[in-house]
C-alpha cells in the first residue's frame, strides 16, 4: 500500500513538475553550464532564395552530460509561429522528429526540424530559424532547471517576383533552379510520332522495294506468276492474258520491249535467265502462235497455260538470282 502510494505520489509530482516546466518561460531560466551540452548541426546548404511554401530542414544533435536531462516537453511545438518583436515572421515549424540514445554518462538527442516559409515579401529579407530553447533538469537536484539555446540559423527569403514585374523569366532568382515544365504528355506523343515515322519508313521501303519484303522478291515475274495463277486456264482469253503478263514482265525486267529478235541482247544483259534460254524461245514461239500466226506450231504441249505457269515460276527463280529447280544439278 505504501509502495503503491509512493508511486502515485511520484507520478503526481513529476506530472506537476512537467506542467510547471511547460509553464516555465524557458528564456527566464539560467543557462546551462558550459560544457554540459555539446551541439552539432547539419544546416541546409542553401541559405537564400526561399519563398513561400519552401520547407527548410535542419538537424540538431545534442549531447547532454549526466546528471542533466532534457525535458522533452520543452521541445519546439509543431505549428508554433515564430515571432520577432511581437510580429509573425512567417516561419512555422512544420515537423519535428526526435530520437534519443541514453548512455551511462550522457544522452544523445537527435532532433530533425522542418520549417516552412509562410511569407511572401516584396523584397528579400532575412529570417531566422530559431533560436529554440530547451529546458534541462538536474536529476540530482530536481529544483535546478536550466535552459539551453539552440542557435538560430539565418536564411534569406526572396519575393516571388520583383514588385511590379509580371514576367516570370525576368524575375527568377539566380539561385533558383529552373522551373521544369512537365513534358510527359509531349513525350508520349513524341513516342507515338516516332512509331508512326518508323512505320511510314518501313512502308516506303516496301513500296520502293517494289512491294518486296526481301530483296529480289516481288519482282515482275513474281507478279506475273500471281496473275497467271488467278486466270482461267481453259479458255483462249486466259491464255492471251497470261502471255501478255509474261511479256510485260520481260519488258519490265529488260526496261525495253523484248522480242524474239533481241532475245540475245536480253540474255546478255540478264545472264540469270540464260539457264532457261530454250524455254524462253519456246515462250516466244507460243506467243507467236497465239498473237500473230495461228497456223504456226508451238512446242509447249497441250496445256499451254500450265506450261506458262511453270515457265513463269522458272523466270521468277531466275529473277531472284536462283537456279531454276528443273536446272539444278543437271535435273
Amino acid at each position: 500500500m505504501t509502495k503503491y502510494f509512493r508511486v502515485l505520489l511520484l507520478t503526481a509530482i513529476l506530472s506537476i513538475s512537467s506542467q510547471q516546466a511547460l509553464a516555465i518561460d524557458s528564456q527566464t531560466l539560467p543557462d546551462v553550464d558550459e560544457g554540459v551540452v555539446s551541439i552539432n548541426t547539419i544546416d541546409p546548404y542553401k541559405r537564400v532564395g526561399y519563398t513561400i511554401g519552401d520547407v527548410i530542414e535542419r538537424e540538431v544533435t545534442l549531447t547532454i552530460k549526466a546528471p542533466y536531462k532534457l525535458i522533452e516537453t520543452s521541445l519546439p511545438i509543431v505549428g508554433y509561429e515564430k515571432r520577432y518583436r511581437g510580429k509573425v515572421i512567417g516561419i512555422e515549424l512544420k515537423n519535428i522528429e526526435h530520437s534519443k540514445k541514453e548512455h551511462k554518462d550522457y544522452t544523445t538527442h537527435h532532433i530533425k526540424l522542418a520549417y516552412q516559409v509562410f511569407t511572401n515579401s516584396v523584397v528579400a529579407k532575412n529570417v531566422a530559424l530559431g533560436p529554440e530553447y530547451l529546458n534541462l533538469i538536474n536529476t540530482n537536484n530536481k529544483k535546478q532547471l536550466v535552459k539551453y539555446r539552440i542557435p538560430s540559423l539565418d536564411v534569406a527569403v526572396s519575393p516571388l517576383s520583383i514588385f511590379g514585374q509580371v514576367k516570370v523569366e525576368n524575375n527568377m532568382s539566380q539561385f533558383l533552379e529552373p522551373l521544369l515544365i512537365k513534358d510527359d504528355q509531349e513525350r508520349k506523343w513524341l513516342n507515338v510520332a516516332v512509331g508512326v515515322l518508323a512505320l511510314s519508313l518501313l512502308a516506303l521501303l516496301y513500296i520502293f522495294g517494289k512491294h518486296a519484303w526481301l530483296p529480289r522478291m516481288g519482282g515482275s515475274f513474281a507478279r506475273a506468276y500471281r496473275t497467271i495463277k488467278k486466270l482461267p486456264s481453259k479458255n483462249d482469253t486466259g491464255l492471251k492474258q497470261a502471255i501478255s503478263a509474261v511479256h510485260l514482265a520481260f519488258n519490265q525486267t529488260a526496261k525495253m520491249s523484248v522480242f524474239n529478235d533481241n532475245l540475245d541482247e536480253f540474255l546478255k544483259n540478264n545472264p540469270n535467265f540464260s539457264y532457261i534460254k530454250s524455254e524462253i524461245s519456246q515462250f516466244f514461239g507460243l506467243s507467236r502462235q497465239v498473237y500473230f500466226e495461228p497456223n504456226a506450231q508451238h512446242s509447249v504441249g497441250n496445256n499451254p497455260t500450265q506450261w506458262l505457269l511453270k515457265f513463269t515460276k522458272q523466270c521468277r527463280d531466275c529473277e531472284r538470282g536462283l537456279i531454276p529447280t528443273t536446272h539444278k544439278a543437271g535435273v
Binding site: F259, N260, D261, R288, F292, E293, P294, N295, A296
Partner: peptide, 12 residues
C-alpha cells in the same frame, strides 16, 4: 518462210 507478219519482220 512465214505465213504471217511478226514484229520481227517490222523491225527488219
Amino acid at each position: 518462210n512465214r505465213n504471217a507478219v511478226l514484229p520481227d519482220d517490222i523491225h527488219a
